[in-house]
Each structure stands twice: as C-alpha cells, then as structure tokens.
C-alpha cells in the first residue's frame, strides 16, 4: 500500500459516503451510515486507517491530514442530514397533530349567585359607601314590635297596608316589613346611627306577577342631631344613580306611613321607556322604588331616643322590585321558583 493508493481510497470513501448521507431518509439510516463509515470498530474509515502503519513514517502525517479531512466532511454531512431529518420529522408531527380547533372548549364548572341575595349585597355596598352598617333582626316578631312601636296601634286603619300572617307562638306574627329593625337598632346603638337592615318578610297576600307572600326588604335608618329631609333626598339620589345609572331622573313626592312624618315616595324615571310614559309605568314616566320619610317622633321615643334632640330618616325598599328593574324580570314569582334556566343566567 502506498501513499497515493491510500489517499485515493480515502477520497473514494468520502465520495461514496456523502451522497448516501444526503439521500438518507431518516435518522435510523443516518445512524447506520455513521457506524458504517465512522464506527471505531469495523467502520470503513477505521479499516482504511489500519493501512497507515504500512506506510513509511514520513508519509503518515500526510495521510493523517487526509483522514481528518474525510472524517470532518462525513461528520458535517451527517450533522447536516440529522438536522434536516429532525426538522422534517417535527414538521410531519405537527401536521399529523392538527385538530379541529373550531370545536367548543371543555366547560369549567361554575355555579351562580341568587339575584335576591346579590341585589341585597349591591344595596348594602352602595349605602356602605355612606357609612351605613348592616344589621339583621328576627323574622318572627310580635304585634308590639311589628306595629305598635312603629306608631300603628291595634285597630288602626293603616293596618290595611299590611295583611299579616300570625303564628302559634305567644303574640307572634311573621314580620310584614323590616321596619321593626329600626327599633332594635335604636335600642342597641346611640346616634349617630346609619343602619341598613335586609331580610325576609311575609304578607298575607295572594300571589301574582307583582305580589309575593314571602319577599325581601332592605330597611335604612339614619339618626343624628341635624339629619333632615334634604339628606334623605341627596342619599336616595346617589343610590338611584348607583343602582340605575348616573343620568337617571328621580322624584320625591308625598307618601304615607304611620312611622314617618313627613312620609315620602321615591320614584325613578321609568326604566322601560325612560320617562315618556308606557304601560310599565302606568304612562306616568315614573316608577316608585321605595318608601321613606322622617322617623316619627313616637318611633324615636319607642327606640329610646329623644325626639327633641335627634331626628332622622328611614326608608324601605322591596329587593325584588329593584332586582326586577335591574335585570329586566317581569314576574316576581321567579325569585322563589328557582328554575335553574333562569338562575344560571347569573353565572
């Protein structure tokens, strides 16, 4: 074996290997070629290199240069081919993994909160910004707390305003409004008082689209030395704007409750027609959302508060009414029906 022969064999090996590598279809073929040409034992290059020992010592470094040239060329070709086939494999995988992205996602379980409780929370939040503190009272009250202490004596004609359900516990009745809470708060707190009293109420009332025998009210009470009708107006305006939108018109007009004097009915511009007049507002352009007034001196006295020094206002609103207006609900009965088709809309 002479130098020229070995050199030409080495070059021939390179010329044979490079097209095969270039044509290799996959990594496995490249691995076979790698072993076949570059394998330490039995690889074609290693086999040729065994011939180096037969060369004269002077020629050996020259052959070494050629060996390295060939090895590097083959290695570079293999690396390039590996990168190419990996890219192709990835591309093929991505194509194969294509899905129909238009299908719906997998829904996450999510419940909902009842509009009555949520509306109470919203009312409490709005009045909370004005320092109103939430309290609660019992639902089973007595004639004294539900009526008499609120300036509604027995056999008073105003009792027609509250058809009452009575229960078989001594002197008991189901509260017809949250107003008894006024007295309870006056007994536990001293002025300045800003109180909010949400809760369930009961009336002996035939149920229809706008009347329920069980319903929820929120009572408000504010008592201090100078609290006046203007404060009530200002506060209710803020409430109406927060609840029904900043531009909502409001109206203050006389009402009647035995436990307030003067008494107030508070209207907002019709939420259906905006005030032009429609069937929903009885063509008046207005919807009444709550009753209010300056706490009657008799009620303050029953609460242990000196009506000469202190004065204040109270208001009471039907939660269902607010919720119906807010959510476009036309029938009060849906609240206690709990049809999931309705409730789940509040998700």
């Amino acid at each position: 074996m002479d130098l020229a022969t070995l050199t030409s064999q080495l070059h021939a090996l390179g010329e044979e290997a490079l097209p095969k590598i270039a044509a290799a279809p996959d990594v496995a073929t490249l691995d076979e070629l790698d072993v076949a040409y570059l394998g330490r034992k039995g690889g074609a290059l290693s086999s040729l290199m065994r011939g180096i020992g037969q060369l004269p010592a002077d020629d050996r470094p020259r052959v070494g240069v050629v060996v390295n040239e060939v090895r590097q060329a083959v290695e570079a070709a293999l690396e390039e081919a590996r990168r190419r086939t990996a890219d192709a494999a990835l591309a093929a995988r991505l194509v194969a993994e294509t899905v129909d992205v238009t299908t719906p996602g997998r829904p996450i379980a999510r419940g909902s909160l009842h509009p009555i409780v949520e509306t109470i929370g919203r009312i409490a939040e709005i009045f909370g910004q004005f320092g109103f503190v939430t309290y609660e009272g019992p639902e089973i009250e007595s004639d004294a707390t539900n009526f008499q202490m609120l300036n509604i004596p027995p056999d008073h004609p105003a009792r027609d305003l509250w058809d009452t359900m009575y229960v078989d516990v001594e002197g008991g009745l189901l509260r017809t409004h949250t107003s008894p809470g006024q007295i309870r708060v006056m007994h536990t707190e001293s002025p300045p008082i800003r109180a909010l009293l949400p809760g369930r109420c009961f009336r002996y009332e035939a149920v229809d689209a706008s009347h329920a025998s069980e319903f929820f009210q929120v009572e408000g009470l504010m008592v201090d030395e100078g609290t006046n009708l203007g404060d009530l107006r200002g506060l209710l305006d803020e409430f109406a704007h927060a609840m029904f939108g900043a531009g909502r018109a409001t109206r203050f007009r006389p009402g009647y409750y035995p436990f307030t004097e003067p008494s107030v009915a508070f209207d907002v511009g019709c939420l259906v027609c905006g005030g032009v007049g429609c069937p929903a507002c009885g063509r008046t352009g207005w919807m009444t959302i709550l009753g209010a007034g300056m706490v009657h001196p008799v009620v303050l006295r029953h609460g242990g508060i000196d009506p000469e020094r202190y004065q204040g206002f109270a208001f009471g609103m039907g939660v269902e009414r607010i919720a119906m207006l807010r959510h476009g609900i036309g029938d009060i009965r849906v609240f206690l029906d709990n049809d999931l088709r309705l409730l789940e809309q509040f998700r």
Binding site: P192, G234, D237
Partner: peptide, 27 residues
C-alpha cells in the same frame, strides 16, 4: 308645609354629619 311647597323643593345633599362606629358585617 312641605307637601304644599312641593317635595321637589327640598334640595338634596349627601349627609355630612358624624359617621357611626364601624360594626362587623353580618353578611
């Protein structure tokens, strides 16, 4: 008096008197 003057003559203002004590929220 206010009925005859018209309730709408009462001008509203936000309450500016003393705030009550903080109480825990029962809800």
């Amino acid at each position: 008096i206010v009925r005859l003057a018209g309730y709408e003559t009462v001008s509203g203002k936000t309450p500016d008197t003393s705030m009550p004590h903080v109480r825990p929220n029962p809800l």
